[in-house]
Simulated scan of single mutants.
Amino acid sequence: MQQPSREGPPRCALGRSTLIMLAVLVGQALFASTAFAHAVAEGDKGYIQEITGVHLIPFVYLGAKHMVTGYDHILFLLGVIFFLYRPKHIATYVSLFAIGHSTTMLAGVYFNIGINSYIIDAIIGLSVVYKALDNMGAYQRWFGFQPNTKAATLIFGFFHGFGLSTKIIEYNISPDGLVPNLLAFNVGVEIGQLLALSAILIVISYWRWKPSFWKHAYTMNVAMMAAGFVLTGYQIAGFFFAPAV
């Protein structure tokens, strides 16, 4: 019978607890309302619609809040860094994602480029599916080649940014102070992304030291893929069956 180490509980138990913590994130995405994906909470929506002028701190807060509660963003980031070990590689991919979603979020709102929210959110759900399949090595087995992971991260970053810009456009943000407020919001998004990324890295880095990581890594990516399909299916159903506003 396996004896506990002197430093704490058995390693298998620690591995299971870490896996559970990561699975909670996937489970939340499976059952969370779409209000936490790209929509802004009703109270925040009212605030955005009513204020005019420059309000940097509130918009920084709103941007950070959006990213921390944006399950689709976090799931995609989890997929991106799942098998990245070196800090410079993590920084490269996270920067590509940030450049992508910052560009389309700012340009989309400024130039009033809106995309149907159901369609763009369905694509964002598929970005989670894509990354989970990539982590499982599906493309090498199915097609015999590896897609460019950096290009994919940047491209899907563009879609994530359009998802947010589409919602902001729907809330008719005041043109008075638009540019500074948008920049502040984007700063908040990046702060929220760093907070979420830090939490993910702490958990997954701890898990990687456990034997259970390689045992359950494939299962974890299957769960992420399932979450992506659920998010996508929900949006497609909304596109066809949601009542017109």
Rank of each mutant, 00 (worst) to 15 (best):
Q2I: 15
Q2L: 14
Q3R: 13
Q3V: 15
P9S: 11
P9T: 05
P10A: 13
R11M: 11
L19T: 02
M21S: 02
M21H: 04
M21F: 06
V24A: 05
V24W: 00
V24I: 13
Q28M: 14
F31G: 01
F31M: 08
A32P: 01
A35S: 14
H38W: 04
V40E: 01
G43M: 10
G46M: 09
I48K: 02
I48S: 04
P58W: 02
G63I: 05
G63W: 02
A64N: 06
K65Q: 15
G70V: 00
G70H: 01
G79N: 07
F83M: 11
P87E: 11
P87S: 11
K88W: 13
H89Y: 10
I90C: 06
A91N: 05
Y93L: 07
Y93S: 05
F97C: 07
G100H: 05
G100F: 03
L106P: 00
G108S: 08
G108A: 09
I113A: 06
I115S: 06
N116Y: 06
S117C: 04
D121C: 08
A122D: 04
G125Y: 03
G125A: 08
L126D: 06
V129N: 01
V129I: 12
A132N: 09
N135T: 03
M136F: 10
Y139W: 15
Y139M: 13
Q140N: 14
Q140T: 12
R141F: 11
R141S: 14
G144S: 07
Q146V: 15
L154K: 01
F156V: 10
F156A: 09
F162C: 02
F162G: 06
F162K: 03
S165K: 01
K167E: 12
I168P: 01
I168S: 02
Y171Q: 04
I173P: 06
P180T: 09
N181E: 03
L183W: 05
G188C: 06
E190N: 15
E190T: 06
E190I: 07
I191Y: 05
I191F: 08
Q193W: 05
L195D: 07
L195Q: 11
L195F: 13
A196P: 03
I202F: 14
V203N: 08
V203Q: 08
I204C: 06
S205N: 15
S205C: 11
W207E: 09
F213G: 03
A217F: 08
V222Q: 10
V222E: 08
M225S: 10
F229D: 05
V230P: 04
I236K: 04
I236F: 10
A237Y: 13
F239A: 06
F241R: 08
P243A: 12
V245F: 14
V245I: 15
